[in-house]
Design a protein around this nucleic acid. Structure first.
Lengths: 340, 340
DNA sequence: ATGAAAGCGCTAACAC
DNA sequence: GTGTTAGCGCTTTCAT
């Protein structure tokens, strides 16, 4: 252990002096250039270690025009539902992946008010690329950003305009289809759905997945109620379903929050779950875990999704080839709400 | 609307030329120095606007030795419970506050593995200060960081070592006392508690708040079970309480997650809430909102707490005077679990 | 393979 | 009040 006084960060120059080489060589070693002799590398490494040298990020950025920083942009609409566990997990995945690289994560809440400021910041050379999360929202005001800055979106874009963009998404349709098929295998013969808003990709895709499963089993696909992904809307949709006069023995609800709402109505109306009506959700969040009964659902790999977004962006920045779109696999989680 | 080609960011020099002043003057205007004539300011502003000038952060940092970046450090232990809604809200508060300043938020998940890397990064002049969140954890491995870098902690430090540090915390003891008193006012005469780990400040403080309320009402304070803040541990603690042979008509549980677990045991044992046993929690998170019955709890102002942390740090960085400790007020939320 | 030299865009004394 | 002059610490041609 050495002194405790602020040692005023050693510079590359000092490393060079101690290693007996030029600053250029130190720079090459630090940046892992292959054109350096092993001895030089060793000497520099030793000096770096001994001095506890850490490159100055600002100087590096200024000289190289690369910031080694990436922004995670959260549209305010998403921020409001920040409590959304899905989103929190995505952030975690991003941060976790980045910890293994030398990229830094800059978080930005992009409110309506400072959207111009945000654009300028992003376009002003302050970051090498950006990650834009939009989950259950149709908000793609940052779609055009992709033209001037490497961007990776979380969740597929809604508009065709952004068809050239990079994104990673969960296979909503496949997940909905799988869980609906599970309902069928559990013996349901008349399956309703409470779907999400049809102006959001997850809303659209989950509905079509349900439809695919129901149709290919030769069942009817006309029991559809629309919600807005909130528990309350799920409760309302279930009320409409129950009051509709149609019998049904299974429901696929497009997310766990709405499913939780639906469950409470079912309980209040004296319907037994799963005996009278089996219920399945989507997301795999806390709502489904704590509901009564616990909910069969489709688990979103949210941490992995965040990590993958970061990976795709970093790969692009490093000049590696990457798939434009990544579909994350989903997992069926069977719980009591369909077990009969 | 002008061209769409990448305009290769205008420099301060170009602004100076267009405004007919020197670079220094532009710099002064940008940095809001008071020693500039109004005409000069106007001319520079016009040029900046016209050119769409955005200062280059790296250059600025290099020259001024200030990064205008602050780190939000999340010990991995916290990251694992990232789904913790409290934490997500704190991040949101921080980001929201920072959006009004020209500071940038850098997120770091500090795993055991790269803790040295993290320290180096923080101490290497990459940020002007740091925010360390530790919520329900006793993790204060970053305590000493405060000696070399301006740091603001979220949650009071456990050890005396850090007594000189800046932190903002929720008034855990006051919250616990208030909600326990509410239990008493609801008619409870024999009140138990399921407290948190006694090696974490919130665990300690909430227990002492409960004790204070119970004692000053002349009630017994011997029904205490310890949990670890997880729903499961809450269920186990409640089981022990029930099997303990002591009667009780009220329980203060140190967080909503444990309370949710306790509630499920109560239900399974045929106890009616709140008729037989009134239950109150702490945190005001989703667990308490979705529990059956909904939980009376103490609402943590998590977004505000995050915002305040950011505010304190920024004030320090800007040389303003700030209180070393801020206690955020709590709010009692009365729901069905105590309404009788 | 390595070194010398020229900046990257800005701030901060210091003179005027 | 404003301009001039040095750098901040690093990368990057370009020679060698």
């Amino acid at each position: 252990m050495t002194t405790d006084a602020t040692p005023s960060a050693p510079t590359l120059e000092q490393v060079a002096a101690r290693a007996g080489v030029s600053r250029s060589t130190v720079s090459r070693v630090v940046n892992e250039s292959p054109h350096v002799t092993d001895e030089a590398v060793a000497a520099v490494r030793e000096a770096i270690e001994a001095l506890g040298y850490v490159p100055n990020r600002a100087a590096r950025t200024l000289a190289s025009r690369r910031t080694h920083a990436i922004a995670l942009v959260v549209p305010e609409s998403t921020a409001k539902v920040f409590a959304d566990p899905f989103f929190a997990s995505v952030v975690q995945g991003v941060a976790l992946h980045l910890a293994d690289t030398d990229y830094t994560l800059t978080m930005m809440i992009a409110s309506e008010a400072n959207s111009e400021k945000t654009r300028r910041y992003l376009l002003g050379g302050n970051v090498d690329g950006a990650l834009v999360v939009s989950h259950h929202s149709g908000d793609h005001s940052y779609a055009r950003l992709g033209r001037s800055l490497p961007v990776v979106f979380g969740g597929r874009p809604l508009s065709a305009e952004e068809s050239g963009s990079y994104f990673v998404d969960v296979d909503n349709a496949a997940g909905a289809e799988a869980v609906t098929r599970h309902l069928i295998e559990a013996g349901c013969r008349r399956i309703a759905t409470i779907c999400g808003p049809q102006d959001m990709p997850p809303g659209v895709d989950r509905l079509s997945g349900w439809r695919r499963a129901v149709q290919s089993a030769g069942l009817q696909d006309d029991l559809v109620e629309v919600g807005d992904f909130s528990p309350r809307s799920g409760a309302e949709a279930m009320t409409r379903l129950l009051d509709g006069g149609q019998e049904f023995d299974g429901v696929f609800v497009a997310n766990d929050q709405m499913a939780a709402g639906a469950l409470s109505v079912l309980r209040a109306r004296g319907k037994r779950v799963p005996a009278d009506v089996a219920v399945a959700g989507f997301d795999g969040d806390i709502y489904g875990e704590t509901s009564e009964p616990p909910l069969t659902t489709v688990l979103q790999p949210s941490v992995a999704l965040g990590a993958r977004m970061a990976e795709v962006l970093v790969d692009r920045l490093e000049g590696r080839e990457v798939e434009r779109v990544t579909m994350m696999p989903i997992d069926l989680v069977v719980r009591a709400s369909t077990r009969r």
